[in-house]
Nucleic acid binder design. Sequence first.
DNA 1: ACATAATAGTTAGGAGGCTAACTTAATCTA
DNA 2: TAGATTAAGTTAGCCTCCTAACTATTATGT
Lengths: 172, 172
Amino acid sequence: MFTLQDIPSSEEIDQLAARYPDANPRAIETMLRLLRVGSDVMNLGESHFADLGISTGRFTILMLLNRKYKDGVSPSELAEGGGVSRATVTGLLDNLERDELVKREHASNDRRSIIIKITDKGLAFLDSILPTHFRRVAWLTSSLSDQEKTTLITLLGKIAQQIEQIENIPKT
Amino acid sequence: MFTLQDIPSSEEIDQLAARYPDANPRAIETMLRLLRVGSDVMNLGESHFADLGISTGRFTILMLLNRKYKDGVSPSELAEGGGVSRATVTGLLDNLERDELVKREHASNDRRSIIIKITDKGLAFLDSILPTHFRRVAWLTSSLSDQEKTTLITLLGKIAQQIEQIENIPKT
DNA sequence: ACATAATAGTTAGGAGGCTAACTTAATCTA
DNA sequence: TAGATTAAGTTAGCCTCCTAACTATTATGT
């Protein structure tokens, strides 16, 4: 993920934005900081997972399987749930299966599809890493009050709504 | 970037977190939403830049060169400014130079280093895409008041501080 | 001053995403 | 019900990032 390391000062942003009539300096600053914090959190997770011998993708698959799919789920659903392509899921499952954290089974009703289940080893692995993982997640927001967390979620939601409506952006 | 598509409901998060003493359900929800919005914004940018024939990385390099480095800057500084490895910068510069948006020159004082300058074609390219780019950025935060933008930046800053101090996280 | 360290850029190889195309199986439709 | 379309999973090949190692040059420390 490629994100600006030193976010320009408000003055620099003002100066740049002045050259473009539709630019909004505060909008630029807001998005730069959002991207920066988002990618920092992401990288923090990646490197922590790497220490544990997995990747963010593999962790997400395991969490999806653990969460509401204890009876097994198809790779397609995992792809949809993780917001990733089916091809990517195939690769993740190859690795997870090699490590015996997950197993592939034939589906009984549809001979095209397979059913993915988390193994006992996979569940034990999750149980071994989740306490620390959740402690780290809690740490990241530990300087925010509950009220502030709610506010942050609300403001992020407003941006999410704009993303959904990006096609409606005025042309000029 | 691999981020949960459907963020679990508060109830589901509560249920999961109940099994781990140090887990904070609101923290989990906050971080999931931050990651989700961050990656959506990132993907939106990636696909827009792809339509324009560049990548986020190449765009960032051009913006760094345009911003305060009109007299040229070394690849190392670009790597630092973009928060990316020198090896990655080498590849980005190869592509940018091939498209004549950037040129490599020998440094006069240090024969190890080279100086990167944005070309007139590169400047013209930026001028052709920035109005639309900034309009899209403004759109994303257009449902937030200035006060809300400030609040969001403040809250993100608090998370950034926790990231910096991740090593100080209590062990138990 | 000269051996050792550090620095700049590149290259090689790997990881984790992606799309497009392929195989097999199920479903629709005329 | 035969033929076409759709769907599931995989494979192949690309992109962009990474780290580690290499070459060439500069800086340092005794």
